[in-house]
Design a protein around this nucleic acid. Structure first.
Lengths: 366, 366
DNA sequence: CCACACCTTGAATCAACCT
DNA sequence: AAGGTTGATTCAAGGTGTG
């Protein structure tokens, strides 16, 4: 662990409190070079138009809060510039910042970080294991959000707990893409009506990884858009100090109650063993995309049936078309069929089951 | 498949060629509103101390202090602005663009796309299954790159082959994170010394997914940073036309040789799963006219609601009367309802959805 | 008690066509 | 150009209820 310059000012910080007010004004009132890490989850400026309904006609509870409304990109940029500047002033020279966003706002934040002299260390993708689908089938499922990790300036001696992260990842170096579920179940805070207390509550697992990786016990972590306090809760668990800023009273109240119930972990409890993953699913289409099978290539079955591969990973055999499983089932007049073991392709003059190709892909993934 | 406006200019395009020159000048020499898709993999630059060229080909001085750093971003932004503007002019109104980059440049590209009026549809993460590790253990393994998919403007009718992508993904909606290996092995092009011919050759699997998903056969795809021609190679395989622009002769030569060896896939293999919207529209009244349903016949819903068919192809159920969709929506107090799948009729004592009759009519039409 | 079916929900720039 | 009509469209978790 590296030693850092401790400024005299640090002792005057309002630690482990949630401050009421506009984050820019509050940050400007704090001493410069005084916090170790900033985690910021600012409004995304979603610009949603009409209502969205699911295929079952239920209505999606969208983010339509006032705090997410901006008049233009120009207004949003001005806001971003101001809070990033205020944040940079209070960061210690070897401090760092994390910001999180979606394609609506993250490009503007990233560009402004660079403009102000922050030094980007990584962009990290939070891949959601259970995202909301795209109901109308008009785009790709929006299945990730992007975080940017940056030091205060180029050459700064930022904190990176390489070994701890490697341990979190079963002994393998931590990558820039993290698969984590969204915040649901008991962790999701509810208001007195039983509705979600905050529309965009982040999962504690996300903050856990951020704080274990880029802070040390005793560090001061500031969150200028505190919301219902995930940053504070995880900081407290992990033996770090936090400063929260939040202007909505309802959110502050929920956060205070939440954090008061948190107990700091025992030191030994800090390390968790992640569970083993199931075998990853490999879509047949990937064999086509990757050129392991060519569109137009003919597959054969044990009973001599044939089918032709199409560019989208479906098969065609006479009138039957569909997935490897569907076409196999149709040809056998069976209710179902495992296409992976049913279909063979020619390799060096021999018939080989396509499952062999799936095994190759799985081997590469590990 | 939707029909698009075909401009007269399209016939004059230099199709399936690699054009020598600066991409901005070349794009400016092409007719406006003429290409369906642009795929761009521009220089990732930024810290390329001295390697950066302005749009006029003048060289940017080496940088080491903050002021020059700012100058370097400024020059990169100027370059980005210029080529994105040239690209937008030649895009058809319903055309789209894909750009790919890393955290060094992608935030600046994304912000500029938005500034110019492009409408971001998704950011897509290419998650590399075999990235290069971070050897020093100072950061997260840089295991992904980011692509941005955007239409020319808000409200444009961009191409999205939802069903084909879903088929590629084994029947599950395609997400915004794609796991694909980097380009290695036989696919990786070598020069005469056996070294890699291009430092950042993209895998064909990546382009396969992009082109299957966002173009149709016969579409024109332009790549302003053609390199060794992955875009052209995959376009040719998939029965699309391409236009490549590349100013390095060595890359052009490698690309030409590569593409000449490509064979287009069979027509049958190129057909991908069509969207249901593309099927011909059948008015419900036709079922009545053709005697498949008789006026007075009673339809039922899954929840036991009933309605009577009238001679003009409308339904009546209590006070509700109107189309199959309107009456269904009224009975369910829903904002909308697909009457084809909501209503059932009796056939041989069994309840059958009326959509079956529509399918019979459609089958006759072919 | 378990197994299984069913219901709810999540930072969303989510329609196309005809009159 | 605006407004009305047709009709296409969802995945993974977690919680709840029933047999």
């Amino acid at each position: 662990m590296k030693t850092k310059t401790t400024t005299k000012a640090a002792v005057d910080l309002p630690l482990n409190q949630i401050i009421d007010g506009d984050c820019i004004k509050v940050m400007n009132s704090l001493p410069e070079n005084s916090v170790d890490l900033i985690f910021a989850d600012p409004p995304y400026n979603l610009q949603l138009k009409g209502d969205l309904h699911r295929p079952d006609n239920s209505k999606v509870d969208a983010v339509d809060d006032d705090w997410d409304q901006f008049d233009s990109f120009k207004a949003y940029d001005q806001f971003t510039r101001a809070w990033l500047k205020a944040a940079r002033r209070i960061l210690k020279p070897d401090g760092a910042i994390w910001v999180i966003g979606s394609y609506h706002n993250v490009f503007r934040m990233g560009a402004e970080l660079q403009n102000q002299g922050y030094w980007i260390l990584n962009d990290v993708v939070w891949r959601k294991s259970n995202p909301m689908p795209n109901f109308r089938g008009k785009r790709f499922t929006n299945a990730h959000e992007t975080m940017i990790w940056a030091s205060k300036s180029e050459g700064a001696k930022y904190t990176f707990n390489y070994e701890a992260l490697k341990a979190l990842n079963e002994g393998i170096q931590m990558r820039s893409d993290w698969v984590l579920p969204i915040c649901t179940g008991h962790e999701r805070l509810k208001d007195e009506n039983g509705d979600k207390a905050h529309p965009t509550q982040k999962p504690e697992s996300l903050l856990h990884r951020v704080l274990v990786g880029s802070t040390n016990p005793g560090d001061v972590i500031l969150d200028p858009f505190f919301g219902t306090g995930t940053t504070g809760a995880v900081a407290k668990m992990l033996g770090r100090d936090f400063i929260g800023i939040e202007r909505e009273e309802a959110y502050r109240k929920v956060a205070e109650k939440r954090i008061s119930k948190i107990r700091k972990f025992d030191k030994e409890a800090l390390i968790t063993t992640p569970s083993k993953r199931a075998e990853p699913r490999v879509p047949f289409g990937q064999l086509v995309e990757r050129g392991m099978l060519r569109p137009g290539e003919v597959l054969t079955s044990p009973r001599g049936q044939t089918a032709k591969v199409r560019a989208d990973g479906t098969l065609i055999s006479g009138d039957a078309r569909g997935s490897i499983h569907q076409v196999g089932a149709a040809l056998e007049s069976a209710p179902s069929c495992n296409g992976w073991t049913y279909w063979f392709f020619k390799q060096d003059g021999k018939n080989v089951p396509i499952d062999l190709l799936r095994q190759q892909i799985r081997a590469e993934m590990n």
